[in-house]
């Protein structure tokens, strides 16, 4: 058990060292897309609100900006870019070394994800502090805030399971980034990361309740904003979705690895 933990810890250390070798690249990778996306959304909503007294679907401008800022914090806490490395490992044949070492491919990538996530957590903390300092955000309730952080980390695990799946697609596809990008856009839209769910037509809201999408952004934002009503349903949805992804990933790995030809090596 201790030896096994040591393997995980050493892998995380290697991953930290590698990420730190390219500090600027790492910071840009984590912050770049999230910040650009955030500023686009903020500009969009500021244009839509005529003045401070306008209320749209129960949100005034200040609340909407809070909503979008919490969305940024969740993205920083939960969405890692580990899937890129994973598909490249398969596409470039680096996967062979994990097949020979007595430490599995999924173990290596999960440990790498955890180290990436921990550094990302640190960056998210700095961004949050900055947003609080600039009065763009306020923490309504400290307990809810910690629940929100823990919930977001769980969302991060779900995202990892999805990225693992898209990464494994490299057994079949030469390029997987389009698949990841399309999936990300769909999820961003349906999870309420761009438009809060109350803005959706009623029928769409009813349908979305039965999908994991709202649990990925809308539910944690509500928790951060002081509403715990969706917590249990969100947790249940996340656990079921992750279980589903684990089963799918296991099956996809078994099938994919049989097709693997390690060509050109």
């Amino acid at each position: 058990m201790i030896a096994n933990l040591n393997k995980w810890f050493q892998t995380m250390q290697i991953s930290w060292t590698t990420l730190m070798a390219y500090r600027l690249n790492f910071a840009l990778l984590v912050l770049g897309p999230a910040l650009v996306f955030y500023f686009v959304k903020v500009s969009l909503w500021q244009t839509l609100y005529i003045d401070d007294t306008t209320v749209l679907q129960g949100f005034n401008l200040k609340e909407m900006l809070h909503y979008q800022s919490w969305s940024l914090v969740i993205v920083l806490l939960a969405q890692s870019s580990n899937g890129v490395n994973l598909s490249e490992d398969i596409r470039l044949g680096r996967i062979s070394k994990y097949m020979v070492y007595p430490f599995n491919f999924w173990e290596f990538h999960t440990a790498s994800f955890l180290s990436f996530q921990s550094l990302q957590f640190f960056i998210a903390g700095i961004c949050l502090a900055l947003l609080l300092f600039l009065d763009v955000l306020i923490i309504e309730n400290l307990n809810y805030f910690f629940i929100g952080v823990l919930y977001s980390l769980l969302v991060g695990l779900f995202w990892f399971s999805v990225q693992y799946f898209t990464g494994l697609m490299a057994f079949w596809l030469d390029e997987t980034w389009t698949m990841r990008a399309v999936f990300q856009i769909i999820v961003n839209f349906l999870s309420g990361a761009v438009i809060p769910l109350p803005f959706f037509p009623e029928w769409a809201q009813k349908v979305l309740v039965y999908t994991p999408f709202p649990s990925l952004t809308y539910t944690p934002i509500r928790i951060f904003m002081g509403d715990l009503s969706g917590l249990y349903q969100g947790l249940l949805t996340l656990f079921i979705s992750m279980l589903f992804m684990i089963v799918i990933n296991t099956l996809v790995w078994k099938k994919g690895v049989r097709l693997f030809s390690a060509a050109g090596m």
Binding site: T11, I14, T18, A21, G93, R94, V100, P102
Partner: peptide, 30 residues
Amino acid sequence: RRKIALVMGQKSQLWWDIPAMDSLHLIKAY
């Protein structure tokens, strides 16, 4: 896997961006 080793002249088994000693420590743990 503990009983075998593979060296490929055209593919690096070591981690590219870190000193070899770090890779050796990782292998030690594995």
